[in-house]
């Protein structure tokens, strides 16, 4: 049993203070979503503003039905598939690039700024530039080809910079040691480097997923004949905005929270096994 020294008390106070701040912070960033949660149970005749006109699951039911304008379920499926593709490519490219940048190489400066340029090009113009080029080449745009291309351009710098932060002052001696013991490059990567950078790779991938799933401007002219979810929602706003949107938002929030719990569960089990 540890004794309650003044030092321990001080640490506990600091930790409690930070925890309270974290909770307040969560309240702040979840703030606008409370209205969304509540209004998703709006009565059948109500809209997307207060007052509530009764409570119902009417708008939740609507989520499962074909939508009036556009094709919400289909668009959502496309957006998720696209976001997953962007996630994988971003994680892969960011890791490869950040590893390359651990050593000096010719034109590394040029490459560095080119990657960052992806952050800076305004989306509508990148979309326009690509669309005109595709037309000249006679290639049709589609969300899974041209859409994917520009989404990766947008997400890559985020993932890359995260990986730069991860490799920042990365302790290379562990890899040295592994090499000295005769491991080949692939083994060194698999056994030493990758486990150390996993959190970063996950974060880079998450950035990719998040940025792609929510991207509107870059997709406007590049999604082809089928809409991604943001395009579909944008189109639905040329009509009455119904609480179905809030049901969708609430559902995706709940889904995300569930996924985090599942992740925690899986992680705990795996962690126990590997011990």
């Amino acid at each position: 049993m540890a004794r309650w020294t003044p030092e321990r008390w001080r640490k506990l106070r600091v930790k409690t203070g930070f925890s309270i701040y974290y909770v307040i912070f969560l309240l702040f960033i979840y703030g606008p979503m409370f209205a969304m949660f509540v209004l998703s149970f709006q009565g059948r005749r109500g809209g997307t503003s207060f007052p509530m006109r009764g409570f119902s699951l009417y708008w939740w039911n609507k989520l499962l039905e074909p939508s009036t304008v556009g094709d919400m379920q289909g668009a959502m499926g496309r957006s998720i598939i696209l976001a997953l593709m962007v996630m994988v490519i971003t994680a892969l490219f960011s890791t490869m690039l950040a590893m390359a940048f651990r050593k000096a190489f010719l034109f590394s400066n040029v490459l560095f700024y080119t990657i960052l340029t992806g952050l800076m090009v305004p989306g509508v113009l990148l979309s326009l530039g690509m669309a005109i080029l595709l037309r000249q080449l006679g290639l049709p745009p589609a969300w899974y080809s041209s859409g994917l291309a520009v989404h990766v351009i947008w997400a890559l710098p985020f993932g890359y910079l995260v990986m730069m932060a991860v490799f920042n002052r990365f302790d290379a001696r562990l890899e040295e040691a592994a090499r000295d013991m005769g491991a080949d490059e692939w083994t060194v990567f698999k056994e030493v480097t990758f486990p150390l950078i996993t959190p970063g790779v996950v974060a880079a991938g998450l950035f990719g997923f998040t940025l792609s799933y929510d991207e509107f401007a870059r997709t406007t002219l590049l999604s082809g004949a089928e809409n991604t979810l943001p395009l579909d929602i944008n189109a639905s706003m040329t009509q009455r905005i119904r609480p179905t949107l809030f049901a969708l938002g609430t559902a995706s929030t709940i889904f995300s929270l569930l996924m985090i719990s599942v992740f925690l569960g899986i992680y705990t089990i795996l962690f126990r096994r590997s011990r």
């Binding site: 912070f25 969560l26 960033i29 979840y30 606008p32 979503m33 209205a35 969304m36 209004l39 997307t48 503003s49 207060f50 998450l206 998040t210 799933y213 929510d214 509107f216 979810l229 943001p230 929602i233 944008n234 706003m237 905005i241 949107l245 809030f246 969708l248 938002g249 995706s252 929030t253 995300s256 929270l257 985090i260 992740f263």
Partner: peptide, 20 residues
């Protein structure tokens, strides 16, 4: 990840939710 969750709701939907 808990901090990221609001990000996974389309900003177009969140934007509508600001008013209420």
């Amino acid at each position: 990840l808990l901090c990221m969750v609001p990000f996974w709701t389309s900003y177009l939907i969140r934007a509508v939710a600001w008013l209420p």
